[in-house]
Amino acid sequence: MHSLILATAIRLLLPLMLLFSLFLLLRGHNEPGGGFVGGLVVAAAFALYTLAHGEKEGRRMLRVAPLQLVASGLLIALTSGLLPLLAGLPFLTALWSAVPAPVIGHAGTPLLFDLGVYLLVAGMSLLIIFTLMEEN
């Protein structure tokens, strides 16, 4: 099922949605948003692309294997939890930078954790979507 409208639209939509997902990720700490929603938006973007061009093209567009996204997401989230252990605080305690960074405001381990969730959710959803769309 090839749809010309979807295929044309997705060329514009894909970068926009990826940008929007980053926006959601960064604003997530104090406002609605966050890693989970951001990850879902990424997955939605690639899912639309896959709908337009097929599962093989979708995988090619993503470049990395979804499973690697899951693994690196988990690794980042785990690291954010382990960092406070070095400072002698319990697992998963939030550490904040003293100086606010430009654009994102106060950075800290929660942002790192959210980034991990972002990658994990995007990877997991795409893994499932690609598996379900496989032709055989």
Binding site: Q68, L74, L75, L78, F91
Partner: peptide
């Protein structure tokens, strides 16, 4: 020693992550 309590969670999780990375 309280961080000992987190180890039974960290060990399998870290191993699973490493296993996923080295698929």
């Amino acid at each position: 020693m309280k961080n000992l309590l987190f180890l039974p969670l960290i060990i399998p999780l870290a191993t699973a992550v490493l296993g996923l990375l080295a698929w």
